[in-house]
Design a protein around this nucleic acid. Structure first.
Length: 618
DNA sequence: GAACACGTAAACAGCG
DNA sequence: ACGCTGTTTACGTGTT
């Protein structure tokens, strides 16, 4: 209070070591202790194998396509789902981290991204050890699906794609210009294009530059494939008459050079271009195959989207058996929110782990002053599947010096709820933090202070006098209450993550990791309610946030006895809060998350814990 | 721009 | 005196 002016000076004084270093420790901390070294070292062996895998996958894709084409069953335009026995290896998102150091990675990437990368690498390690590609491939497939979701979501939010989940890729094709499609392929697959893959597969000697796909789709595509839009947005039905080619404008010709992906041949005029086109880019088998591979990829993406949605549906159905969430939360006709492998459904208020744009900012380039690492608000708001997240990435956080994407409050809450008695002393909370997170093994003064601060500040943490001292418990009602009642899916977050932040400049692998992280946005609360915008099916991705918490609680609470609030009986005095009686709504549930619970919870207890009904009745 | 949430820093008090 | 615990205030930043 007396430090209003002093506070500024204090921040700059050397005495404020914690304050300053805590910020700088985001970068320099890695210099001190290499918390994430175990995961990072994995990256050293992965690049070559990844490339091999990628090449093999590309080869496989091309061969598969050619086989299908030879068998005559391929009709590129048909959008009917082909049940290919082999998944097209579109998941090539794992480009090698290459020369990036762990520290750099941490600065570039947010923890979930790093986590994604490390997971990928670990999965590949395991795969190598097992001598089987199956595992990694499946994981990549999942990640692929996640990336698809993210892209679709992104497009939807930009209004590019109507929302028909079962034909997501179909609409994608219709809505996107070829260059967008190719860019999508790049982004999604992590490889420059299927053309590149094909080059690798066939040993073609095309130019390696495929990055400038301004109007990248070959004419053969428009001739053979039902891609109607052109880069400039105009409708372009597959007419391939020479007339068009001589009119002076050609989708593949601009600024005096051929815009065939990877070509860039200089052509002084249209005639020369046409000549070049006929010579170099004739509609031969090769170019056709390229395009069809593209299409095949797109179709497979569609298939995967469908499978993913189906799987999601099943997951929801199974989890709904416990939580009775399925039918209520997802009206018929509405697709269920896709699930990422890393973010299983945690029904109540729990979104997936989302990287926060702010975190990315902070880690990447925001070295603003003493305001610490990041605000984890987003993660807290939308992606607090702490239980599942931690359960799945326990080892990661334990070993990697990466800040968990959760707020202190949610971490504390989780620590408390995870404890046998749902109560912890302050020191036990400390220990939980250090035990679970390598990140919290340093700068102890800072985060411990934050923990204490949070405990005191938030009403959801209830101090209970014990015989042995004081313990902290969680008032679940308050915890739910403290969320603002109305939250949306943070479209700005999506925008920031996808379009901004130098996203395009990132290596494909980082993009993949980023996308994987951001993909969890699909599990974030809907931008609009299904009622108000039923067309935004794909965007309805879960009533996971506070706004829906109450409703879900209402529908769930009475039907899931095992999830009812724990009976709390503790004869102790709580943190004094004069006005609390009024706010507690006179219901004796202020300590509902208290110490004693007699019901042994299932193994996935923590997932359920996250969903403790709060008996809010409005 | 205001309100809010969050993270961080810091002062302070009580206690062992 | 010291450290721990707990409370409180202040401030910067990001989000809504």
């Amino acid at each position: 209070m007396m430090v209003e002016s002093a506070s500024e000076t204090i921040r700059t004084t050397p005495s404020n070591q914690n304050g300053v270093s805590s910020l700088s420790s985001q970068s320099d901390g890695g210099g001190g202790r290499e918390g994430g070294s175990n995961g990072d070292t994995n990256g050293e062996i992965s690049p070559v194998d990844l490339l091999h895998l990628q090449q093999q996958q590309a080869l496989q894709a091309a061969r598969q396509f050619l086989l299908q084409q030879a068998s005559g069953l391929n009709s590129p335009g048909s959008n009917e789902v082909k049940q290919s026995p082999v998944q097209v290896p579109v998941s090539m998102a794992m480009m090698s981290p290459q020369m990036i150091t762990p520290q750099q990675m941490q600065q570039i990437l947010s923890p979930p991204q790093l986590q994604a990368l490390l997971q990928q690498q670990q999965a590949l390690m395991l795969q190598q050890q097992l001598g089987s590609k199956q595992l990694a491939f499946q994981q990549q497939l999942i990640q692929m699906q996640q990336l698809q979701q993210q892209h679709i979501l992104n497009l939807q939010r930009q209004g590019l794609v109507p929302l028909q989940p079962t034909t997501a890729m179909q609409t994608l094709q219709q809505a996107m210009c070829p260059s967008d499609l190719q860019q999508l392929w790049k982004d999604v697959s992590g490889v420059p294009s299927s053309e590149e893959a094909l080059k690798q597969a066939e040993g073609l000697d095309l130019s390696t530059n495929s990055s400038n796909s301004t109007s990248a789709f070959p004419k053969a595509a428009s001739a053979h494939l039902p891609l109607h839009s052109l880069p400039n947005g105009q409708s372009h039905t597959p007419k391939r008459d020479s007339h068009e080619e001589h009119t002076g404008s050609h989708p593949l010709y601009g600024h005096g050079e051929c815009k065939w992906p990877g070509c860039e041949a200089l052509c002084e005029d249209m005639g020369q271009f046409i000549k070049h086109l006929n010579n170099e880019h004739a509609l031969d088998d090769r170019s056709t195959a390229q395009c069809r591979v593209q299409m095949q990829v797109v179709q497979q993406l569609e298939i995967q989207v469908g499978q993913m949605l189906t799987r999601k549906h099943l997951n929801l159905a199974s989890s709904g058996s416990l939580l009775k969430r399925d039918s209520e939360a997802y009206p018929e006709g509405l697709p269920h929110p896709p699930t990422s492998a890393a973010t299983p459904i945690t029904p109540l208020r729990q979104g997936p782990s989302v990287i926060s744009s702010s975190s990315l900012h902070t880690h990447s380039h925001s070295h603003t002053h003493a305001v610490g690492p990041i605000r984890r608000r987003n993660s807290d708001k939308y992606c607090t599947p702490i239980a599942s997240e931690l359960a799945q990435n326990c080892e990661f956080y334990k070993n990697a010096d990466v800040r968990p994407p959760f707020t202190y409050a949610s971490l504390i809450r989780h620590a408390i709820l995870e404890s046998p008695d749902r109560q912890l002393t302050l020191n036990e909370i400390y220990n939980w933090f250090t035990r679970k997170f390598a990140y919290f093994r340093r700068n102890t003064a800072t985060w411990k202070n934050a923990v204490r601060h949070n405990l005191s500040l938030h009403k959801c943490f209830v101090r209970v006098e014990n015989v042995k001292g004081a313990v902290w418990t969680v008032d679940e009602v308050e915890y739910q209450k403290r969320r603002p009642p109305k939250m949306t899916g943070s479209p700005t977050l999506v925008k920031n993550m996808i379009s901004g932040l130098g996203f395009g400049s990132l290596n494909a692998s980082y993009q993949a990791a980023l996308a994987e992280s951001s993909l969890s946005l699909l599990n974030s609360p809907p931008l609009v309610t299904p009622q108000s915008a039923p067309s935004l099916n794909m965007l309805h991705v879960g009533h996971d946030d506070v706004s829906s918490t109450v409703e879900q609680v209402n529908s769930n609470g009475s039907c899931s006895p095992t999830l009812s609030p724990q009976q709390y009986s503790h004869p102790v005095h709580v943190k004094e809060e004069p006005t609390e009686l009024v706010e507690e709504d006179s219901r004796p549930v202020s300590l509902l998350a208290g110490v004693t619970h007699s019901l042994p919870l299932p193994s996935d207890e923590r997932d359920l814990e996250e969903d403790l009904p709060t008996e809010e009745l409005e």
